[in-house]
């Protein structure tokens, strides 16, 4: 395989980012929220808060020593292992979040039962397929969340991510015919829709409606 796939491009840590392969004028309508110095600071403060919470949970009790230790370790982690900025531009919607969580648990159970059944079915060599699924909302956050969730729901597993184009390459297990591929595609887009409805901005939700569902890979 080629080694220069876009997903591997090192990410420079320079605030609002417009990936090279994506012309901003092409009706994208999806400006990353402008991240100034203050926004970056706020993101880091939120991350530090989470790290301290994890540290305290790991030690199993709240004390001044744990709190201070957590602050020191969290600051060190943020300083020495900086991540590309993922700014949360939408808002949380409790109802849609609940739908997402409940569907996720249901699909995780049915996926596990399905894979377990395939595993113990005697004399079976399951056939697979790799399909390209272009997402409608191409923010890093949506890409990452969708990729995580569809790895845990029935039949699908991420093989490759094209970050600039917002395309997920997905391996499908136990393919019996073309209709299985169509239903997997639909299921992935449904996962994306639930995620965007739960955490996306109003603009992103509008894109779900306007973009045709069957936009194929531009390759």
């Amino acid at each position: 395989m080629t080694d220069d796939l876009p997903a591997d491009r090192p990410v420079r840590d320079d605030g609002p980012r417009v990936p090279a392969g994506r012309p901003a004028a092409a009706g994208d309508g999806l400006p990353q929220p402008a991240v100034g110095r203050g926004g970056r600071r706020r993101d880091q403060a939120v991350a530090l808060g989470w790290l301290v919470a994890v540290w305290i949970l790991l030690w199993g009790g709240l004390s001044w020593a744990n709190l201070l230790g957590g602050l020191v370790v969290g600051t060190a982690v943020l300083l020495f292992f900086p991540l590309p900025p993922v700014t949360f531009g939408g808002r949380l919607r409790p109802g849609a979040l609940l739908t997402l969580a409940v569907t996720f648990v249901g699909e995780l159970v049915s996926a596990s039962v399905h894979v377990a059944a395939v595993a113990v079915r005697p004399g079976c060599r399951p056939r697979g397929a790799i399909i390209a699924v272009p997402l409608r909302v191409r923010t890093d956050l949506n890409l990452a969340l969708t990729a995580e969730v569809i790895s845990l729901v029935p039949g699908t597993l991420i093989v490759e991510v094209d970050r600039d184009q917002g395309v997920l390459y997905v391996h499908v297990l136990d393919v019996r015919g073309p209709e299985d591929l169509t239903s997997s595609r639909k299921r992935i887009l449904a996962v994306e829709r639930r995620i965007v409805r739960a955490v996306g901005s109003p603009d992103e939700i509008r894109r779900l409606r306007t973009e045709p569902v069957d936009r194929r890979s531009p390759s």
Partner: peptide, 26 residues
Amino acid sequence: AAGIGVLRFPDVLDRMHAATKPQVLG
């Protein structure tokens, strides 16, 4: 079941299915 799947599936990608879903729920 996840262990059996990892052992029996013919291919790396199939095995990763077994190593994620039933394993995580387990």
